[in-house]
């Protein structure tokens, strides 16, 4: 009993293993925005530090801490792996201020037509699959650059489903609509920030055969 409690506490201690261990992920606008906000707060408190210095210091401290945690957890690996007592509780750690919505279009007679737009009641083709919690978890990741390869696999998979469901479609387009989430003031003043499409992938029916 005591061993189990000690194990789950050690396993639950925060670290930056996983996607956060990639320096490229720290260049995401959401992460940079966090660092900028912290830099501003420190400066207001009279601590002189630039955003670059803060990022470097946090990165070094996190890397050292995570390396120590890996050593501490090594004896627990068999219990973690075979009993399934993982304890990484990174839930709602930070709001993602620059998320993206998935858009899927099909081309019929030379015209693009939307069939799926995330969270749209009007364009909800295969919504039971694309809106499922597990798919949401996947798509949240795929909007990040680090998951480009997996996004391509997914896009091809869903495009093949589209050519099956819409035999009249000659092409399928899969893309992200990236945007900054609006502040309460922006919503109240009807100044919703405009986003833009990115990571556009187009598949012809022939290419999917």
């Amino acid at each position: 009993m005591l061993t189990h409690i000690v194990a789950i506490v050690i396993l639950a201690i925060p670290d930056t293993a996983g996607p956060a261990a990639k320096r490229s992920a720290w260049k995401n606008p959401t992460v940079q925005n966090e660092l900028a906000s912290y830099t501003r707060t420190f400066n207001e408190m009279g601590i002189a530090i630039t955003q670059e210095e803060l990022e470097q210091r946090v990165w070094s401290a996190a890397a050292t801490w995570t390396a120590w945690m890996v050593v501490l957890r090594t004896p627990l690996r068999p219990y973690t792996d075979y009993a399934g007592v993982r304890q990484r509780w990174r839930m709602f750690v930070a709001p993602h201020r620059h998320p993206a919505k998935l858009h899927i279009d099909i081309k019929i007679d030379g015209q693009w037509r939307p069939v799926y737009v995330a969270r749209s009641p009007d364009y909800n083709w295969r919504g039971h699959q694309l809106d499922h919690t597990r798919t949401r978890s996947m798509l949240f990741r795929y909007a990040w650059k680090a998951y480009r390869g997996s996004y391509r696999h997914f896009a091809k998979w869903i495009a093949a489903k589209a050519t099956h469901d819409f035999p009249e479609a000659s092409e399928v387009r899969v893309r992200w609509y990236g945007f900054r989430t609006p502040s309460p003031e922006e919503v109240n003043e009807d100044r919703i920030p405009k986003g833009k499409f990115r990571s556009t992938l187009v598949f012809t029916r022939e290419a999917l055969r």
Binding site: T41, H96, A118
Partner: peptide, 29 residues
């Protein structure tokens, strides 16, 4: 307790205006 410790974003703090939940709820996911 540990999910609370993970919440290091400025948005969970007074410096971020305690705006974390508002912005999290604006995420399409």
């Amino acid at each position: 307790f540990f999910t609370g410790l993970h919440k290091v974003s400025i948005y969970w703090t007074p410096a971020g205006g305690f705006s974390a939940l508002y912005y999290i709820l604006q995420q399409p996911s």
